[in-house]
Computed example of a mutant assay.
Amino acid sequence: MPRLIDADKALRNLPDDLPYKDSVRRVLAQATTVDAVQVTRCMDCESARELTQHENLYLADGVLICTNYEVSENGRLPVWPQHFCGYGEPKEENDG
């Protein structure tokens, strides 16, 4: 499975004594750039709530409720922590 890297940072951090350094630079510089966007997983989303029972809906352990009205008609969509959608916004970090 391919993985994303920061090729510019890798180029900056190449040690001076690296054998074949010019070849490594060339390969990194010519590597294909992927079209990717950062996503917010449900477990890190401000719209996700940890509930095991909500109204008449019973959830398994580890399932969250999405309260984003853009995603579901009633704003109560069960989601797994690793899921994500185009509406996800990261939780604000507490400064303290």
Rank of each mutant, 00 (worst) to 15 (best):
A10H: 09
L18H: 03
T40A: 07
M43P: 06
R76N: 12
P19D: 07
L4N: 08
I5L: 00
M1P: 05
P15W: 00
N68K: 11
V34H: 11
P2I: 01
Q82L: 11
L14I: 14
D61N: 15
K21P: 02
C66D: 06
V63Y: 05
A36D: 12
D61F: 13
T52V: 08
A7Q: 03
T32G: 09
L57A: 05
D35W: 05
N68L: 02
D16Y: 08
Y20G: 09
P81K: 00
G96Y: 02
V24K: 00
D61V: 09
D8V: 07
K21E: 01
E93A: 14
Y58P: 02
I65C: 00
M43T: 13
L18G: 10
L14S: 06
V79L: 03
N94C: 08
K9M: 05
G75T: 12
L64W: 01
A10P: 07
G86F: 04
N94P: 12
I65F: 02
E89W: 01
L14G: 10
A48C: 15
Y87P: 04
P15A: 12
N56M: 09
A29I: 12
L18T: 13
P90F: 05
I5M: 03
P78W: 00
V63H: 01
N94K: 14
Y69P: 10
T32A: 12
D95W: 06
N13W: 04
Y87N: 14
D35P: 07
L18I: 07
L57E: 05
M1K: 06
S23T: 15
G86K: 13
T40Q: 09
L64K: 00
A48H: 00
Q38V: 11
D6F: 04
R76V: 05
L51F: 04
T67S: 13
A7D: 01
G86D: 06
I65S: 02
A36S: 15
N94I: 04
C45T: 04
H83S: 05
D22I: 06
D17I: 11
T67I: 01
L11T: 10
L57P: 01
V39S: 03
C45F: 06
D35R: 11
Q30V: 10
Y69K: 15
S72R: 05
E46T: 11
N68C: 13
P81F: 06
S47Q: 02
P78I: 00
G88M: 02
S23H: 12
L28R: 08
V34D: 12
S47D: 01
S72N: 15
Q30S: 15
C85Y: 03
C66S: 09
N68G: 04
D16C: 07
N13S: 14
L51V: 11
M1D: 08
E50K: 08
T32Q: 10
V63W: 09
I5H: 03
T33G: 13
L77F: 15
R12H: 06
T52Y: 02
P90W: 00
E55F: 00
A48L: 00
E89R: 14
F84H: 15
Y20H: 13
S47L: 01
S72D: 13
A10W: 04
F84W: 14
R25T: 15
R12E: 14
D44H: 13
E70N: 14
W80G: 12
L4V: 09
R41H: 11
Y69S: 14
D35F: 10
Y58F: 12
L64R: 01
S72W: 01
M43N: 08
L77Q: 14
G86E: 03
W80M: 08
L18P: 03
V27N: 10
L28V: 11
K21V: 07
L64Y: 03
L28W: 08
